[in-house]
Design a protein around this nucleic acid. Structure first.
Length: 113
RNA sequence: UGGGCAGGCCAGACAAUCGCGUGCUUCGGGGGUACCCGGGGCAUGAGGAAAGUCCGGGCUCCGCAGGGCAAGGAUGCCGGAUAACGUCCGGCGUGGGUAACCAUAGGGAAAGUGCAACAGAAACAUUCCGCCGAAACAGGUAACGCUGUGGUAAGGUUGAAAUGGUGAGGUAAGAGCUCACCGGCGUCAUGGAGACAUGGCGGCCGUGUAAACCCCAUCCGGAGCAAGGUCGAAAUGGGCGUAAAAGGCGGCGGCCCGUCGCUGCCCGACAGGUGGACCGCAUGAGCGAGCAGUAAUGUUUCGCCACAGAUAGAUGAUUGUCUAAUACAGAACCCGGCUUACAGACCUACCCGUAAC
RNA sequence: GCGGUCAUGGCGGAAUUGGCAGACGCGCACGGUUCAGGUCCGUGUGGGAGACCAUGGGGGUUCGAAUCCCUUUGACCGCA
């Protein structure tokens, strides 16, 4: 993942939380919004509810890996925030991937190809 | 062979494919020749506690980090180790365990103050019940400790604790009043570096609490890598630098000494430091061997260092084989400890019991 | 990174020089009042048959600890 594709800055986050849309699934919650750029910016988050730092790190890694492996055709020009839910503890990568893809489909961003 | 005790060590391994951080290297593209973008190769990439933040340092800044006083905090048997410590090592005392061994905030209560509820006569010198009637005083009887003053802490009651304990002598009754043994205290001698131990002598002997205030001894300036430094877009728009003496004001997060800064006009032309980038930033009180030391540890001896360095934060996924292995858990400036969490695997020494020889 | 506060029955919240823990209120249960319900009045209300055990957990000091000390868990707050 390239540096510019990492979403950062307090302004960006609060803008997406305020004005963006959200969908939830079994393991992840997705916030998304058009950013007006020609590439996507993505953030993976895990709150303290998920557990200690080892559990939070694992949750973020699983989400990253799932996004990397996904076969869906994700269009450019969006900001995404993937947030782990506390149910993610003990989940396998395949399960997280299914959940993440399901969330993306629900959001309506994915164009059927 | 059953149980126990102390210490050490490891913290899944290997292979394949894909993916990430860092360093080196190489290729392609752009370029203002400072660099920027993209791809490949090689190397390397979390812990014993990285954790809690409970202590101690290094480092940086607070003008210097200097002296004194006060306040506050910490530590507290002895000796040693260390950069330092509240840590560690070796001892001493006390307590526990058959033992190996374990635990131990363990200075001072005759410097002073406070507290000790309830109960009890009394919780610093106290007479409620009790005991005595020897001596002295007063009163009284037919007579008598009969009454008061008096003597007495041996016995009773209460309590966590009652004026050293047990026994004997002694006495009017009693009392370390005297003696024996035991406990404490003081003192002397011997041994030891010391805590202390052993022995002699002295009747010197009301309690607990200092993790109550306190006293004594020793130690501590404050803040923290978001420290601090360099370069500096955009926006803002006026402050900044230099400058003698006295006085005044202020800083040095308590005060004093001491010390530093500011304070008119004038002159000069930039200044400030946000988003961001870079440095700080990984060679360090480092690791291994030898030697010295009972040990902690030290070392002017020898060898080794490619050995994480992110900045919303890099270690993951899938498959296969082995296996008992799915525990606790993620570096954020760096070290030394402490404390707490933890599936299990292995090694060493020792103790008790049982059986056989 | 630095620093601080709190935890007591089902709930809120008392009790501090260290001396009977659960005051007081709410809630709940039972009884009374009513034709019935509410209001109101009364009784009870941590666990346990009892002995005793209970102040987030585990130790310690003390005759005695909710209170003092150490350690730990959780919740919350402040500063940069």
């Amino acid at each position: 993942m390239l540096k510019k594709t990492v979403l950062r800055g307090k302004k960006n986050f609060s803008a997406i939380y305020k004005r963006g849309k959200s969908v939830g699934d079994r393991y992840v919650v997705l916030f998304y919004r058009k950013n007006g750029l020609d590439y996507n910016r993505i953030a993976f988050l895990a709150s303290k509810k998920v557990g200690n730092s080892v559990k939070r790190n694992r949750a973020r890694r699983l989400m990253k890996e799932s996004y990397r492996l996904t076969g869906l055709n994700v269009p450019s020009g969006y900001d995404f925030i993937f947030i782990a839910r506390s149910t993610i503890e003990g989940a396998k990568c395949r399960q997280v991937q299914i959940s993440l893809e399901s969330a993306l489909k629900k959001s309506g961003v994915i164009k059927k190809s």
